[in-house]
Design a protein around this nucleic acid. Structure first.
Lengths: 211, 211
DNA sequence: TAGATTGTTAATCGATTAACAATC
DNA sequence: TAGATTGTTAATCGATTAACAATC
């Protein structure tokens, strides 16, 4: 059941829809029209209807969209009901922050292992999980059914680690290193380039001054 | 000197160009053609030339682009030579991670203050900077020439804090909370929605299974 | 000068918005 | 039934790619 592929633009908007629908659900709102949602989210109603229709009609004429149903359908599209084992590579501040802050477990992402190169961190535990030395990574991924690696280490380490991950047939990499990883096409890579984001902010500040 | 406004698509690509040019510079490479850069970055040479021409011609026919010059011009466009004072609101793991990991100072972003609501954190220091209670925030921003607030607190706190920030005439907000902040147009907001990113990765994994 | 490569115009492609018929 | 609102087609807009003349 491989329907026509959906554009990245659409996929990129789904999490935001999901967030708003979750809020509506929490406020006990049962149904919403594309027009009302459009006002709330500051996008066009046309875009909302087009986006949802990529997946084949979640609404009903004259009624709108059922919030609960739509919320759930988007979760399905995004694969949020699936469970995935993951490892965090890099137990520094950022790795720790993600482990604590992301609520991975609640979202179906199970943190199975944490790895670091720094001997001072090894053996410490983060949310009950002991930090292991990098040498264990390859073996651990292979024998623990790990789908995802979160890379929260500096760029040189990240490139090297990515090579190991490829060897282990990792399925996805959530990459926080400031580098583009060169991995085969069938590995899902999602980049979070924080410094890129900060540079965009810097640009915005510059424009602001010019006015 | 307010030239025609540049599309977000172009601005969004500049940090990546900047990163690659920095690497080329570090490897001692002096000049590069759009074609060679295109191979390296996996974008079309046409796009590269179009992008740069938005700002008016950084290259030279028959030669290409001077790496050092281009690197510097992009830095200027992004406003990376400017200095900005900032505060971090939220001294939890993520706030700490950013303070340590982002190398703010090296990039012209000066961390002037750190704030938190948690009494256990107040008084502790992060890179020589004491964590202050939230009550001090408003006064501190006004009297310390703060341009940017980094929001690393949960969503309810973030919305409330944004209101305070607006009152203080903050110029920009780097928002890590999972919520869209509703602030006046002249405030630059750059969002980092980590959970959105993770959902996109989840979608990618789902697609992968279907093949 | 000849070769290389940009700057820039024109063509194409894709994404967004508008409009409206279908239908609840 | 009449009113509301979707699903979907058509029109518009903007971004990307291709092509080539200008020029170093």
């Amino acid at each position: 059941m491989d329907e026509k592929t959906i554009s990245q633009a659409v996929i990129g908007r789904l999490p935001r829809y999901y967030r708003y629908l979750g809020d509506l659900k929490d406020s006990g709102i049962e149904r919403i029209s594309s027009q009302d949602l459009s006002k709330l989210m500051k996008v066009t109603a046309s875009q909302i209807r087009q986006d949802f229709n990529n997946f084949g009609g979640f609404g009903q004429q004259g009624y709108g969209y059922n919030v609960d149903y739509l919320y759930n359908e988007i979760a399905k599209i995004l694969g949020l009901h699936n469970k995935h084992n993951l490892v965090i590579v890099g137990a520094g501040n950022l790795g720790q922050a993600l482990a604590n802050y992301m609520n991975f477990e609640r979202r179906g992402f199970i943190v199975k292992g944490i790895f670091d190169i720094n001997p001072n961190l090894i053996g410490k535990t983060l949310r009950q999980i002991p930090v292991q030395p990098m040498e264990n990574l390859e073996e651990f991924i292979k024998s623990n059914n790990i789908d995802i690696a979160v890379l929260t280490i500096p760029k040189d380490g990240a490139v090297k680690t990515a090579e190991i991950l490829v060897k282990c047939n990792i399925k996805a990499i959530w990459n926080f290193a400031h580098v583009d990883l060169n991995v085969p096409d069938d590995i899902v890579v999602e980049n979070v380039h924080l410094s890129d984001s900060l540079m965009k902010l810097s640009y915005g500040l510059g424009q602001r001054e010019n006015k």
